[in-house]
Write a protein that binds this DNA or RNA. Sequence first.
DNA 1: TTGAAAGCGCTAACAA
DNA 2: TTGTTAGCGCTTTCAA
Lengths: 360, 360
Amino acid sequence: MTAEHAAPDAPAAAAQQQRRAPTLEAVAELAGVSRATVSRVVNDSERVSPEARDAVNAAIAELGYVPTRAARSLVTRRTDTIALIMHERSDTVFADPFFASMLRGVNHALTSTDLQLVLIQIQGDPQRDRALRYVGNGHVDGVLLISLHGDDALATSVSKAGVPLVMAGRLLTGDRVDSVDADNVGGARLAVRYLVTAGRRRIATIAGPQDMSVGVDRLRGYTEEMQAAGLPGSADWIATGDFTEAGGRAAMERLLTEHPTLDAVFAASDLMALGALQALRAAGRRIPTDVAVVGFDDTALAPYADPPLTTIRQPVERLGEEMVHLLLRRINDSAGAGSGAGADPSAVVLPTELVIRSSA
Amino acid sequence: MTAEHAAPDAPAAAAQQQRRAPTLEAVAELAGVSRATVSRVVNDSERVSPEARDAVNAAIAELGYVPTRAARSLVTRRTDTIALIMHERSDTVFADPFFASMLRGVNHALTSTDLQLVLIQIQGDPQRDRALRYVGNGHVDGVLLISLHGDDALATSVSKAGVPLVMAGRLLTGDRVDSVDADNVGGARLAVRYLVTAGRRRIATIAGPQDMSVGVDRLRGYTEEMQAAGLPGSADWIATGDFTEAGGRAAMERLLTEHPTLDAVFAASDLMALGALQALRAAGRRIPTDVAVVGFDDTALAPYADPPLTTIRQPVERLGEEMVHLLLRRINDSAGAGSGAGADPSAVVLPTELVIRSSA
DNA sequence: TTGAAAGCGCTAACAA
DNA sequence: TTGTTAGCGCTTTCAA
């Protein structure tokens, strides 16, 4: 109250400020029914007469009633909230459009429900513990986990706490939790097969970090397809990067030094492919005529590659959506069954796609 | 109690699953004090004896107690939750790293508090209304608004509902709400001044959408600095894009057609600058010797520009942090004052920075 | 400095 | 089909 004469002059404004949100009680009174009936209408119970329902709905509309989450939560023991936990080590990773696309998918899948999404970002051990306690104590109905680097322990902890969990990717430990992933092995094989079909024989790869399932799987796809094509392929045709542009550049330089005669490269990520392109150009190699490059594209960065990059497209947005779908199913399961470990974990795998771009 | 004799076969598992989180009551009992005292300790009340405090803290640690949000919320009428509302029209905008960086800043500023961040994405009128009802009915303590296209009505609505609000950017209507923005006018002037200093005279600009303060301000900076430099500059040296790469390319092509002799371009966003670069290269113009390009860089995309792009860097992450800081202040204000319109809205403006890159 | 008691707004038995 | 009633876990007067 810094205003004018303080109290008596501005009652309207004060009232507007202070006015509490309408409660079930108010709706019940206006509709001429009991609180229980209003609650039934709000929660779509079938045991309500049409008249009562109409009266309640009218009252709700008139009052602009919206249920209070806290009160409902307190009695139902549901929170109507799911957490998106992302574990990131380095700053650069966060700026990755991968994250934005995934988030978009998650959000999209969530709009039809009235679940709330809370973001939890883990950067260090204290935060990690805090998050674990948070989800472990029933403050969310379920957890979506994006572990950008293989922190399998986190997934296992959450899972053990009895909280429904869906992760992106796959646990390297072999422990089984519900997960959604793109077909990284298949995608990588597609990439290499494309290069083989184009007549390339001296095909190198820039692999991703081997502490993440994505990195492991894409390298495996490369190895498998090379073998299938009867191509030599030894360990020193593999350079490992960290999914960043700089890492890709460095890896490419290494490969060029050791194998000046290479005629194709499969990069396990778009950023690394971009780096490879730069290194090749700097080395005076012609792309794609001299060296063909195929990159794995999780994001939307490919358009910035010049010359155009042939890519394996991963449906990141759908990945986010599928994670939500699976999680919702698990949450329902656990509500119904009440206890027990529930069904076997399922691992949804989304197909990838080869996008061939012509050099303009 | 559905337990009892129901499931004699798996009591341990059931117990582990069903075990409820410890309550205040349990802590009180273990510590040998009343619930009220535990509550005081948890909420850092000063009126607690050291002995009681120690006993309570020990009990909390032993039990792993974490307060239940819902219960607390119900009585305090705070939700300890703030909403990040983003209004997006087109799909492309969301994938913008701008968003990820800002979110990172927001999250960072939030980790020291125990506020929860919920994401609300608005895509159409129904969702808009829903969001408005949601925040209007006291389900969040405050709102952060990122209106990618000028939807001033949303900001005004939220603000009128009496909910603390901080927006990114500035309202074009002139209505005053709390906001945080980068110094777009100053940044644009910096860009143009740099070009002028480098000896350029025929400087065109690719402006952003004129329904957003960012677009308007950056164009204004261009105009002001051109005038200050005594350079002609007429309306047809201005091509408007939509902050996308394609838009930048199209705008650049238009400019090249109408002004083949231009020797510099100021692009009001990084994506548009990238597009401009492509168009220039396609037209056979040499960058930067023939045409100098300076872009406004909100994101982290500049590294992908080849040749290197001289940019005006905007501290997007700090922008997110500052929004949170301001919002927290406002939330405290409104809690203290109780009512009234509060202090004058403040508009925080963050400095920008010119980053000069050499063509490798 | 502490405890007893009331009640936040809602749902879920249980009765009617 | 409806209403009555008893809490969910917490904070907060008010007394002691």
